[in-house]
C-alpha cells in the first residue's frame, strides 16, 4: 500500500492572532509553527501504525507551501514516513492546493490519501474531498477508524449524533480525526533519520485560482462579565431568561 499524507503548517494553538498590512496579512512575528494537529496526531500517526504492521507500506508526505514550511516537513519526517514532497507555491486557494495534491496523487499512484479533518487556521475541511473529486476516488470525511484487511477497507466516521461504519476498496481518500490514532512524540533516532530522508521540491501545476483572501477581522471584544453572587444562582437563571432571553 502506498500512502500519501497531507501535511499543513499552522500557527501554534497559543499563537497570538493579529494582522498587519491593513488587516490583509496574518502577523507572523513571534509565531511558533506546528504541524496542523489533525494531520500529525491522526493522519500521519495512523499511516505510521499501518507501516508498523506491514513493512511493505510506503508513506510519502506532501506539503503545498513555500520554503518556510520545510522545518515542519522535517518534523513530520521525524515521526515517520519515507520521503516528502513540497509543492513550491504561496497560493492559499483550497482548489489550487487540492489540484497540486491531486497531480501528485495521479503521478505517484497512491492507494490511500490521508488528510486531517481540517486545518486549525483556515478551518476549511475541504482539501480531502476536493482531492478525491479530482482523482475520482471515494472519500470519507471525519474518519475515526481505518482498517485494511484482505483488500477491504473498513472505516468508521462521525455522523450527526453517532457513528457510521462502512466498507469499500482502495484507492481511497480520508480525512482523519480523534479516534484514528494516539498522538506520539518523535524520538532522537527519528529526528536524526529525518535529516537524510529525501525532500523533493516540485513546481506547481498550472491551475486556476477560484478564491482569494481579501482581509481579516477580529471579533469585537466581549462587553465584560456580569458576576452573580454564588449564594444567589437563581439570579443567573432569571437573567438568562429575561435579559439574555436564551432559556
Amino acid at each position: 500500500m502506498k500512502i500519501l499524507v497531507c501535511i499543513s503548517r499552522t500557527p501554534d494553538t497559543t499563537a497570538k492572532i493579529a494582522f498587519t498590512d491593513n488587516n490583509t496579512k496574518f502577523a507572523t512575528d513571534g509565531v511558533q509553527w506546528i504541524i496542523n494537529p489533525y494531520d500529525e496526531w491522526y493522519a500521519l500517526v495512523r499511516a505510521i501504525e499501518l507501516k508498523e504492521k506491514d513493512a511493505s507500506v510506503i508513506i510519502h508526505l506532501i506539503t503545498v507551501g513555500n520554503s518556510e514550511t520545510e522545518p515542519i516537513i522535517r518534523k513530520a519526517l521525524a515521526l515517520g514516513g519515507d520521503e516528502a514532497i513540497r509543492v513550491n507555491t504561496d497560493n492559499q486557494d483550497p482548489f489550487y492546493i487540492a489540484s497540486q495534491i491531486a497531480a501528485v496523487v495521479k503521478e505517484g499512484g497512491y492507494d490511500l490519501v490521508l488528510t486531517g479533518k481540517e486545518t486549525i487556521d483556515y478551518n476549511g475541511s475541504s482539501i480531502g474531498a476536493m482531492v478525491a473529486e479530482l482523482t475520482d476516488t471515494n472519500y470519507i470525511s471525519l474518519a475515526t477508524k481505518f482498517e485494511f484487511e484482505h483488500g477491504k477497507a473498513i472505516i468508521c466516521r462521525e455522523i450527526e449524533g453517532g457513528e457510521e461504519v462502512a466498507e469499500t476498496t482502495l484507492p481511497l481518500t480520508l480525512s482523519c480525526q480523534k479516534g484514528m490514532a494516539e498522538a506520539r512524540i518523535p524520538n532522537m533516532r527519528g529526528i536524526m533519520a529525518a535529516r537524510t530522508k529525501p525532500l523533493k521540491v516540485i513546481d506547481p501545476v498550472t491551475v486556476d485560482t477560484y478564491t482569494e483572501t481579501v482581509g481579516f477581522l477580529l471579533p469585537p471584544p466581549k462587553a465584560g462579565v456580569k458576576l452573580i453572587p454564588a449564594d444567589t444562582p437563581e439570579l443567573l437563571v432569571k437573567l438568562l431568561r429575561e435579559e439574555a432571553k436564551v432559556i
Binding site: I17, F19, T209, T211, E212, V214, F216, L217, L218, P219
Partner: peptide, 8 residues
C-alpha cells in the same frame, strides 16, 4: 478571527 473571501 473572521476572514473575507472573494469568489472569483
Amino acid at each position: 478571527a473572521v476572514t473575507e473571501i472573494k469568489v472569483l
